[in-house]
């Protein structure tokens, strides 16, 4: 516990800079981040300066920043959008895709164009199809708690002492792996099917059914059944599944980590 309490006192010296970049999404991810209520003020007071963000920060040009939180998928017919994500990659140390659209396309996968006043905007891809993304936080919307945890861990990765860096590295590794995996940006109920159920890993815990934001998953005879027409491709089921990734060593310290997260949010 020592390593976790120590930084609470020493933490405020070097804030990181973060930006929120809005591509084709519904602002639900930003709303989820704000749903940390008091917690978001704590993050901005103690750990991070928000240097770019739609409606929140009066900055027109994308500045250099430590962490970019990208929400939304990218329309490849929209030059502004594609230029913007390239610029974000260039100017940020860590790019985090937040939410289903940025990670795996989500509901924008169903777009066929034809809408005024840009009917030619019809093809939407996850951010990682265009630039290297470092960390995925899937789900529609991502939860306030997941965004909080990832923000704190990213802060520790960049500013923590060696032990904190090691812990943050362990915590973030699976989310980094997901960003680089062949299935991360293609996630849907099918991913759960192909990467867990079809590989003999499912043990019927029901995490996927709880995680699904559209209630497309029911447990039949103890196993997940997905109504694939309802699935919005957010990837929550697969990432929540304890058999998608699970680090025994990290999980053994669950109590300290939860305690640390609580402490830093005070």
């Amino acid at each position: 516990m020592e390593i976790f309490t120590e930084h609470v006192n020493g933490i405020m010296i070097h804030k990181i800079t973060i930006g929120h970049i809005h591509e084709s999404g519904c602002t639900g991810c930003l709303a989820a981040l704000m749903d940390n209520y008091q917690g978001i003020f704590t993050i901005l007071d103690k750990y991070a300066d928000l240097v770019y963000g739609l409606t929140l920060v009066d900055v027109r040009k994308i500045p250099k920043m430590d962490v970019a939180l990208i929400e939304g998928s990218v329309c490849i017919q929209d030059k502004l959008a594609t230029d913007e994500v390239r610029e974000v990659r260039d100017k940020s140390s860590v790019v985090i895709a937040i939410g289903g659209c940025a990670c795996s396309g989500n509901i924008t996968r169903f777009d066929r164009g034809g809408q005024q006043n840009q009917p030619q905007h019809e093809s939407f891809v996850p951010v990682s199809d265009l630039i290297d993304v470092d960390i995925f936080v899937p789900a529609c919307a991502p939860t306030p708690e997941a965004l909080r945890n990832v923000c704190v861990m990213t802060y520790l990765l960049l500013r923590g002492n060696d032990e904190q860096k090691a812990l943050a590295g362990m915590y973030l590794k699976p989310l980094m792996d997901l960003a680089r995996s062949p299935y991360g940006s293609k996630a849907s109920f099918n991913t759960l099917m192909q990467e867990v159920i079809n590989l003999g890993l499912c043990m019927g815990c029901g995490s996927c059914a709880a995680a699904c934001p559209v209630r497309a998953i029911t447990m039949e005879y103890g196993k997940p059944q997905g109504l694939r027409d309802l699935c919005v491709n957010c990837g929550a089921c697969f990432s929540q599944c304890p058999r998608s990734f699970f680090d025994h060593e990290l999980m053994e310290h669950h109590e300290q980590i939860m305690g640390m997260l609580k402490a830093v949010m005070q």
Partner: peptide, 10 residues
Amino acid sequence: KAQLYPIGMR
């Protein structure tokens, strides 16, 4: 995992 990685566990 739902506590540490609450991806879809608001």
